[in-house]
Amino acid sequence: MTPFTRRNFLTATASLLASPTILRAQSLTAEDEATARHNISSFAMQNWQDHFDSLGVATLLADTTSRALHYWSADGSDYRLYPTSVPMTDELTKRGYTKVVRKKVGPSWTPTPNMRERDPSLPITMAAGPGNPLGTHALYLDWPAYLIHGTHDTRKIGRRSSSGCIGLYNEKIAELYDLVPIGAQVRLI
């Protein structure tokens, strides 16, 4: 007979509490599985096949609803998921297919005329550095003034906070910068 100890009591209690969870996990319905596709950060899982015919030289999918950027390598062996900032409004959001046409470490920033109209105090241009909203690295898309870039303001990640671009933590855009070749296909949804 097992002696009654505090450790045995806690182990038995934990087992009993976990039993309904284990039983529930074994009997997931289709609706439960669809709900489980979202993690606690609300990132929605994506399959590249739902958006592209092939992986090309690399593939990026920016999901503005779940505020995540998905990356797949050319052979599909490397998949990465990054939290992002997304455009403040749907009017600022461009959706569709594009590609990476240029990459820059230490990008300078030139606010668009619309940005300067909304905020006349914005500078004409800003050199790379800590105050620059493009962060440390940028991937330029073939849509004018749309980028995937870093940010020095980490409070923006996970929020609707950009004027159209997709923003990542500086350390994450640096990682992505090294992975993504020019010509990588991109889709914003």
Rank of each mutant, 00 (worst) to 15 (best):
F9R: 13
P111R: 00
S73Q: 06
N47T: 13
H38T: 15
T2R: 15
T59V: 11
Q26K: 11
T151Y: 00
L81M: 10
G150D: 07
R67P: 05
W48K: 13
M45L: 14
D50W: 12
Y177H: 14
N39W: 06
T84D: 06
T59N: 10
T64S: 15
S19E: 10
T151A: 00
L168M: 13
T89A: 04
W109K: 03
A128V: 03
L134Y: 02
T93A: 12
L141F: 06
A74P: 05
V186S: 07
D78C: 11
T64C: 13
M88I: 10
E171Y: 10
T13A: 11
L17G: 08
Y177W: 07
T110G: 08
T65E: 15
L141R: 07
K99M: 07
G183R: 06
Y71C: 15
L179Y: 05
Y146L: 11
T21E: 10
A174Y: 00
G131A: 10
A58H: 05
E171V: 09
I189R: 07
A44L: 14
R7A: 10
L147E: 08
W48F: 14
R67G: 04
S163N: 13
S77C: 04
S85W: 03
P181N: 05
Q185K: 14
A184P: 09
K99L: 06
Q46G: 13
Y97Q: 06
Y169L: 03
A58Y: 01
L61M: 03
P83N: 12
T13L: 14
A174G: 04
Y79W: 04
G76Q: 07
P111W: 01
V57E: 08
T5F: 02
T65W: 15
H38N: 10
Q185G: 13
T89V: 04
H152P: 09
P83C: 07
F52E: 08
A68F: 08
S42A: 13
S41A: 14
S163L: 08
Y146Q: 06
R6V: 15
K94A: 09
R160M: 07
A174H: 02
W72P: 07
E175A: 12
V180I: 09
P113Q: 00
R118Y: 00
M88V: 12
L69Q: 12
V86G: 03
Q26Y: 06
P123H: 01
I189A: 06
T93L: 10
T5G: 08
S15I: 08
L139K: 06
L28P: 08
Y140L: 10
V186I: 10
E117D: 04
R155C: 00
S73Y: 04
S27I: 09
Q185L: 06
H149E: 04
L61S: 03
P133N: 02
A74W: 05
R37M: 13
H137W: 01
V180E: 05
P20W: 01
P3A: 12
T29M: 02
R95F: 03
D75M: 03
P83Q: 08
S15P: 02
R187M: 11
T151D: 04
T112G: 01
L61T: 05
F43E: 15
I182W: 01
A34V: 13
N132Q: 02
L16K: 08
N170S: 01
